[in-house]
């Protein structure tokens, strides 16, 4: 089976550590439920990602070099 997450067009998805997560939530002054969502079954997710985790996505952007997006893993 092809591992989609290894494809060059799929940006890097990493699970955020708890302390960095705290920083992120504090920076934006939000609860994690205010983040955009990503489904657990999304093939781009790393295997260890669990529901409730926050994923950091670093992707190429049309307007800037790289954009960082955080998403909450949901069912």
């Amino acid at each position: 089976m092809v591992d989609v997450s290894q494809h060059e067009l799929v940006p890097e998805h990493t699970v955020l550590e708890d302390d960095t997560l705290e920083e992120v939530l504090e920076e934006y002054d939000i609860d994690r439920t205010d983040l955009p969502k990503i489904q657990r079954k999304d093939p781009a997710l790393p295997d260890e990602a669990e529901i409730g985790d926050v994923i950091k996505i670093v992707r190429d952007s049309r307007t800037t070099e790289q954009a960082i997006i955080y998403r909450l893993v949901v069912e």
Binding site: I30, D34, L35, P36, R62, T63, A67, I68, I69
Partner: peptide, 15 residues
């Protein structure tokens, strides 16, 4: 309006 983030930076470059 419910404060859910849609973009972390306007247009990703904030300009």
């Amino acid at each position: 309006t419910s404060d859910t983030i849609v973009q972390f930076e306007f247009g990703e470059d904030g300009t």
